[in-house]
């Protein structure tokens, strides 16, 4: 009886795992195979004559290369640095000074941000960036992303900060450090892993986003990869599938690398974080 139950449980488990694996892997199959076809279509098959020509052709396209290796890098890296910096300082202050309602504050911010970052807010954001003279500039995109990512970054960072024992800071102060020295020499080193998480999270978010650069940037030579793939798709009305797939693969690689890095270093999971 127990054996039957055990076997059934094993079979059920295996079936469940197989279905889940297939469901999540199959949509990605095309992305891995199509770039190596000499004549890619929307259906999936093993390339009979695997080729790297598609990548060569992508690298010949100055616009696309620039979008991926220059523009996306500038925007994602810029937002990463700025978000991490602002969130770390802000979260530290929130964790260590007493402000009325500060616990609710972060929650309200998160809810607020998920409300305000929709496509409707694109209109005022567009006009705001225009007034600031930052339309069609990388900085404008970076600032808007930072504003949007900040609440969640604050939320996660504050959690990190609260897990740091206060005794380190207290002893630094007792030993005659001023507050800025304490911040630089004690707090920042101890929150490095948290900053890393926030930074990577911000990078991945900006790297993948489409709507904000699409609206805020005007000239093709500043467009990031997300919008460049889009214009590949509609160019001449008929997508050049071989190039799109090769480009898309190149485009996901940085995210893949970052994921593997985080997973290896910390294990990709929620730590304390969003748990109420």
């Amino acid at each position: 009886m127990n054996l039957v139950r055990f076997v059934l449980a094993r079979v059920g488990f295996s079936a469940f795992v197989a279905v889940i694996a297939a469901a999540f892997a199959l949509p990605l199959l095309w992305l891995i195979l199509a770039p190596f076809h000499d004549q890619a279509t929307l259906s999936v098959s093993l390339p009979t004559n695997p080729t790297l020509d598609n990548f060569r052709a992508v690298f010949d396209n100055q616009f696309a290369v620039r979008a991926l290796f220059v523009n996306s890098m500038i925007q994602a890296a810029g937002a990463m640095v700025l978000t991490t910096l602002v969130a770390t300082l802000g979260a530290y202050a929130l964790a260590r000074i007493h402000l009325p309602g500060r616990d609710v504050f972060v929650y309200v911010l998160i809810l607020f941000s998920s409300v305000v970052t929709g496509s409707a807010a694109m209109v005022p954001v567009f006009l705001l960036i225009f007034r600031m003279g930052l339309i069609d500039q990388h900085l404008g995109v970076i600032l808007v992303f930072t504003g949007g990512l900040l609440p969640v970054a604050l939320f996660i960072m504050r959690d990190f900060m609260q897990s740091i024992p206060r005794s380190y800071e207290e002893s630094a102060l007792v030993n005659g450090a001023n507050q800025w020295q304490m911040l630089r020499d004690v707090v920042l080193p101890m929150t490095r892993s948290g900053m890393m998480v926030i930074g990577i999270w911000a990078f991945v978010n900006v790297w993948g986003s489409f709507l904000i650069p699409f609206i805020l940037l005007r000239s093709p030579d500043k467009m990031p990869a997300a919008t460049a793939t889009y214009s590949f798709y509609t160019e001449a009305g008929t997508p050049v599938i071989t190039l799109i797939s090769a480009y898309a693969l190149l485009y996901v690689i940085p995210v893949l690398v970052l994921y593997l890095f985080v997973n290896w270093k910390y294990g990709f999971q929620f730590f304390g974080g969003i748990k109420s």
């Binding site: 889940i20 999540f24 199959l26 949509p27 990605l28 199959l29 095309w30 992305l31 199509a34 279509t41 929307l42 259906s43 999936v44 991945v204 790297w207 993948g208 986003s209 489409f210 990869a225 997300a226 919008t227 793939t229 889009y230 798709y233 799109i244 797939s245 898309a248 693969l249 485009y251 996901v252 995210v255 893949l256 994921y259 990709f268």
Partner: peptide, 25 residues
Amino acid sequence: VTLAWILPEAAIAFTWTSFLDPNGT
């Protein structure tokens, strides 16, 4: 499952267009 969540949407849109194509995966 995590990759499905974090890979960039513009690339994902293409793979899904092909996934859902009448002759797709």
